[in-house]
């Protein structure tokens, strides 16, 4: 054993000028980097703030209840009831998800579990391409290809219907739902699969009985994000739904959504007018809905990662 030495003198190498300068620089950088980290937070706060600022004056003209539940939207007469528009958005979104969910889930299961490698390597990029097509292009195709088809198929006077919008939106929501569900299914621990197969279950019984239930949270998140995508989509839906107001909105009739109303009317609204503020209030409603949906998706996603 090395013998105990006398303790070194209690001197400290105190930080010299170089050290201090370096430390100051590092602190400055840390501060700057952190500030940039906060930008997303500031942006969300500013979005809320600016929506509120321009939305609140609406309620000088109508009450909150009248605004949300009012049956009539005549902006030129300063009558601002958005019930029909909210229901329009909900109808198109709900039908879009009804279409997209089974297809997306089937596609996700196919990619994750069944497709041979070569097929998978074609499928995944194709889904990515679908996600990458600009909404205006999808809207254009929906307008010139899909809507005549819908008109013919259901013998309607016009092909610009809620259904056309829903089909269009379904395809826009599919990439989100497919890729997140697929991730969730692939992420299921292999013990689940092994346990199920070891009990004599077939591949399909394992998929439907063990894998999909285990991926439930992830799939829920996928659907929520799909809903968020669909309800916030603007251009495509605006081009194919005809934008007429109906209460209650019907599937085979023209329909008007929140996003389309803002997009079409903001150009005409006089800045600072009641109409202008009412459109911001509509934006606020839209923001609140998507905020809630995304929050729910985030919670589900967190649960699925655990």
């Amino acid at each position: 054993m090395a013998t105990q030495t006398t303790r070194p003198p209690e001197t400290r190498i105190t930080a010299g000028a170089v050290t201090r300068k370096r430390a100051r620089k590092e602190t400055l950088i840390r501060f700057f980097v952190t500030a940039n980290g906060a930008v997303a937070m500031i942006a969300v706060a500013l979005i809320m703030l600016f929506l509120l600022k321009d939305a609140i004056p609406t309620f000088r003209y109508v009450s909150v209840t009248e605004f949300l539940l009012g049956r009539n939207w005549y902006p030129l007469d300063e009558i601002f009831g958005i019930l029909a528009i909210i229901l329009g958005s909900l109808l198109v979104t709900a039908v879009a998800i009804l279409i997209a969910l089974p297809v997306s889930l089937g596609c996700a299961i196919y990619i994750a579990e069944i497709a041979p490698r070569s097929v998978r390597e074609i499928l995944k990029p194709t889904v990515e391409i679908l996600a990458g097509i600009p909404s205006i292009v999808i809207g254009f195709i929906g307008l010139v290809i899909l809507s005549p088809l819908v008109k013919e198929l259901f013998s309607l006077d016009s092909g610009l219907t809620a259904l056309t919008g829903a089909i269009t939106l379904a395809f826009m929501a599919m990439p989100t739902i497919i890729s997140i569900s697929e991730d969730a299914i692939v992420a299921v621990p292999s013990e689940y699969r092994d346990a199920s197969l070891a009990l004599g279950a077939t591949h399909w019984q394992t998929i439907s009985g063990a894998l999909v239930p285990a991926a439930k949270s992830g799939i829920t998140a996928a659907v929520m994000l799909g809903v968020g995508r669909a309800i916030g989509e603007t251009m495509a839906v605006m081009m194919v739904t005809g934008n007429a107001l109906h209460l209650p909105p019907k599937l085979f009739d023209s329909v008007r959504t929140l996003t389309a109303t803002i997009a079409t009317e903001m150009g005409e609204a006089v800045q600072g007018s009641a109409h202008y503020h009412a459109l911001f209030a509509m934006g606020l409603v839209l923001f609140a809905i998507t905020f809630a949906v995304n929050l729910a998706a985030d919670v589900a996603l967190r649960r699925s990662r655990r």
Binding site: T11, R12, I13, T14, A15, T19, A23
Partner: peptide, 10 residues
């Protein structure tokens, strides 16, 4: 003579 664990040590 350097106090390795001291917060003041660079």
């Amino acid at each position: 003579a350097t106090d390795v664990l001291s917060p003041a040590t660079d």
